[in-house]
């Protein structure tokens, strides 16, 4: 049984309960009073990809719309601007709930596959944990070629002038593509991340079992 199916069975018809127990800060969702201030404050609300502003996401959770919420790209659109948190009269940690939901959907494997912010987040993470430093050249290349080779070339061409400018200003080293520099104690970083993951897995397993 997939992780998603497992959870769906476990919580049957109470998605709210599932969110409360499984999602970081999910216990706050019930406290929303549906005033809509968060939605009105959210800068990404003007973006067409933002199908459900926070207020709606919270209502959907209460209405048990599990599938729709978890597969929605909405949580991935949050820019962490914290406007909503600052303004929510009920003091909900909205930004954190948004990220909590995104993370939960990702863990269950139901998050929208090629959603750009999700894709970028993954690229960034893999890039960064590898050497302990972000390799900016590889990171941007990875992003350019997200939608295939020819689109990648097109994106690269579009940014050509910027790249040349950076080269001239010695802010870009093309040899970084081959290896690149690393942090001093790469093994230490890896060990630290491994430990952190262990702790996290343990905590989540405990929560899922609860």
């Amino acid at each position: 049984m997939s992780a998603n199916a497992q959870m769906a069975t476990k919580y049957k018809n109470s998605f709210l309960k599932e969110v409360e127990e499984q999602v970081e800060m999910g216990e706050w969702v019930k406290m929303c009073m549906q005033c809509g201030v968060c939605s009105g404050s959210c800068p990404t609300n003007f973006h067409p990809g933002w199908e459900h502003p926070p207020q709606e996401i919270f209502m959907m959770i209460r209405a048990g719309k599990r599938e729709e919420v978890l597969t929605s790209p909405s949580m991935w659109m949050c820019t962490s601007c914290y406007n909503c948190i600052v303004r929510c009269p009920r003091k909900l940690p909205i930004t954190h709930i948004m990220h909590g939901l995104a993370n939960y959907a990702h863990r269950l494997g139901v998050a929208p596959k090629m959603q750009p912010t999700r894709h970028f987040a993954k690229l960034f993470w893999n890039n960064c944990v590898h050497t302990g430093r972000v390799n900016e050249l590889k990171l941007s290349m990875g992003l350019y070629f997200k939608d295939g080779f020819s689109q990648g070339i097109k994106n690269g061409m579009a940014m050509k002038d910027v790249a040349l400018g950076l080269l001239k200003a010695k802010r870009l080293n093309p040899f970084e593509l081959f290896g690149g520099h690393k942090c001093k104690d790469q093994n230490g970083i890896h060990a630290m991340l491994k430990k952190a993951r262990e702790l996290e897995e343990k905590r989540k397993a405990l929560k899922a079992a609860a």
């Binding site: 709210l16 019930k30 406290m31 009073m33 549906q34 209502m59 209460r62 209405a63």
Partner: peptide, 8 residues
């Protein structure tokens, strides 16, 4: 709300 009453 804390007690879990749902408001729709």
């Amino acid at each position: 709300q804390e007690k879990g009453v749902v408001f729709s």
